[in-house]
């Protein structure tokens, strides 16, 4: 008999919600995955059919029996995933990546999410709220329609500050502008497009607040095997202890393996 590979989960879709046109939340029966998944980790979802690569998706939500994935339909592979219906099988590899480090987290945390970045921060918010922290969600998107799942965060107890490019909800402009003018938290977590993460890092640095950034990148393997997803880190980074010394003091770490969450102060991008 073949030894069953321990991090391959043969799940079944139990619910499918279209949060708005083109944004899907899939819930899968996956108790073993749910039991070990940590905030900020991700999975590789294997689209049924003729795709040539699996899709990296943040673990959006979890309970004892199931995990949820939230994704924007952007191409052939996410289209196939979006077509799945309750009862259909879906294979997930994971959980993958390091996730947010919430040990000894302070009691006042800001979470910055842009677009599909919202898919990677709910579990962190829930864990912080359970620990009694104040959690403010700074949430930005192109337009109000794309600010999906606001109620989920609000009902869990997050305070929410919105921003949209077109001003249809909240502040007109960047969500990081809202963060910059807010009372500074003791910790910032962020997930979203690179310009948003850079701006978050700048704000965190000038306020001397630690920030953990969950990076988004195109993955091939998602498990550290191909070196297609690197980001420069300082040599001394605790996340690259096994990397050889380099002359310029910078190492290129794999976002999928050493990350996807990096301490803003250690990134050299």
């Amino acid at each position: 008999m073949a030894v069953s590979a321990s991090r391959v989960h043969e799940t079944r879709v139990v619910a499918r919600i279209e949060a708005t046109a083109g944004v899907v939340v899939l819930r899968m029966q996956a108790p073993e995955l749910a039991a070990i998944a940590r905030p900020g980790q991700f999975v590789m979802a294997i689209p049924p059919g003729e795709a040539s690569a699996a899709v990296a998706l943040g673990l959006y939500d979890a309970d004892a029996e199931s995990v949820s994935l939230l994704f924007f339909v952007a191409g052939k592979r996410t289209k196939v995933l979006a077509a799945l219906r309750p009862g259909e099988p879906l294979v997930l590899l994971g959980p993958l990546g390091n996730g947010f480090d919430l040990r000894d987290a302070p009691k006042d945390v800001a979470i910055v999410a842009g677009g599909v970045g919202i898919a990677s921060v709910l579990l962190a918010a829930l864990e912080l709220l359970r620990a009694g922290a104040r959690v403010r969600l700074f949430y930005g998107a192109r337009t109000a329609r794309l600010l999906v799942e606001r109620e989920r965060f609000a009902s869990a107890g997050c305070e929410i500050v919105l921003a949209t490019d077109d001003g249809t909800a909240g502040l007109r402009g960047f969500v990081t502008d809202a963060l910059a003018s807010a009372h500074m938290p003791a910790l910032i977590l962020a997930c979203g497009p690179t310009p948003m993460l850079r701006a978050t890092a700048t704000i965190a640095a000038s306020a001397n607040v630690p920030a953990q950034l969950a990076l988004e990148e195109t993955f091939a393997c998602g498990v550290g095997g191909c070196w297609g997803c690197v980001v420069p880190l300082v040599q001394e980074s605790a996340q690259a202890p096994h990397f050889p010394k380099t002359r310029d003091g910078i190492v290129r770490a794999r976002i999928c393996a050493e990350g996807p969450v990096f301490s803003a102060s250690e990134l050299r991008w």
Partner: peptide, 22 residues
Amino acid sequence: LGNAMPRLVHTPAGLLNAIGLQ
């Protein structure tokens, strides 16, 4: 050090890569 990012592009029936022997 390998090549500059991006190093991967998914194409309709395959993958383009330019890792650069990091």
